[in-house]
Design a protein around this nucleic acid. Sequence first.
RNA 1: CGGGGCGUGGCUCAGUCUGGUAGAGUAUCGGUUUUGGGAACCGAGGGUCGCAGGUUCGAACCCUGCCGCCCCGACCA
Length: 482
Amino acid sequence: MSSDKDFIKQITKRSDDFSRWYTDVIKRAELADYTTMKGMMVIRPYGYEIWEHIQSNLDKMFKDTGHKNAYFPLFIPESFLKKEAEHVEGFAPEVAWVSFGGDEELEERLAVRPTSEAIICSMYSKWIKSWRDLPVLINQWANVVRWEKVTRPFLRTTEFLWQEGHTVHESAEDAQSETLRMLNIYKTFAEDYLAIPVISGMKSEAEKFAGAESTYAIEALMPDGKALQAGTSHNLGQNFSKAFNIRFETRDQNLEFGWQTSWGVSTRLIGALIMVHGDDSGLVIPPRVAPLQAVIVPISRGNWKETVLPEAQKLFSSLKEAGIRVYLDDRDTYTPGWKFSEWEMRGVPVRIEIGPKDIEKGQVVLVNRINREKSFVEIGNLMIELNNLLEKIQKDLFEKALKYRKDNTVTNKTLNDLAQTIEEKRGFVRSGWCGSPDCEAKVKEKTAATIRVIDNKKESGINKCLVCGKDSTDTVIFAKSY
RNA sequence: CGGGGCGUGGCUCAGUCUGGUAGAGUAUCGGUUUUGGGAACCGAGGGUCGCAGGUUCGAACCCUGCCGCCCCGACCA
């Protein structure tokens, strides 16, 4: 960040201690707060508002592709969870159980959903009888609970908010194209709205979702060089339909099990957004999902309440009317300088200053959160200039993140090179891989890096497995992950 | 689950080694002067030091146990 001064004193510098910086920003910007229970955080209004913007934009994308929302129960009977063997095995260690209702012990324990495949599939088996019932395209916005050992606000909490889509299709091909369609929606959303560049691709067998046929993911690179899985889309094949007996009569009058998908993103996206765009002054929120896109700070001198404030109020009304998410900070308990720092810390993309000098000249001052660049614009041009600036910030944030990712993506041909890269600077590493789980495990053992995605873009020069040297079937991205 | 750190006004922390009247900064409240990058001064309120037990004339400080949080590693959105 091109700052000569650090105006914010209560945030650990990002370069000093990235983890501390992360939690400092969350607390200071009032995105979330810790409770007395481990791993349980409160999402405060300012943080929740970011989630609401994520929700509303994604929800529209889901609806535009034919999906509907529904809501399924929080509790899942133990017997349901156990129906799909791989699924229960994968989730068992992190399921919270309810065994009492009031003071009566339940005959069957209830799981607090760690994900809803089991309960949803149990209903689908009732609802789906014919090919005419398909596809079923349902999404739910919900909370889930996973008893994680290590928690961090937004990135991994015991309870978190997400959406989970659960679809059923007539054919393997339909399920596969749905899987990829949703993966693509996630990618588009991450890049266009959150301004976070992601790589997408399939997961290896070792990394796939418990119970899936195949898992696809979008992965983002964080500023500390670690990868963050930002969304997943699973092709469930017939694994669950067989376990839950979801059968339908086909067009040619046979009985067949449904072909399913499931896909989700969570409040973790907020964590990604904080890390990717933030700086030493605090948050930087991309305009499209920012609770506030602009804040007006009237310069309080002399009788400013009679002179400056009315002008500021006019600005506020007109911007608000034009659909800008804007706030007028007319508090007289704080100085302008204090407010500047405060709103920077909270990541508002544009600050609008208006003072006596500006009114004289018929102008206002726009300040870009990314670089504190000031521009003086005529009041008449404010709307157009502000919109331009917001778009520019949205774009610049993406470009900056993309550049960072490019600068931190390297190609390594040997395990030693990979180990060195991970040791020295982390980042994404492209390599060849023969597809063997053994080779994958060796990499993990030696470097702690895992295959984030298999992105089958053939790259010249990568044609051998970095471990065993055999011909590589896949080009993969390795990274240390969150 | 292993390693490390920490728990003292709302917040950040000093004080613990070497036991002896609980401190600072900040925030809050009242007042005056201020206000183009976290303003200055004056005044005020607010904690029994994570919990439980022990040693002692006396414990924030020493001992034992417990709880919680944070960070780093093995598992996970």
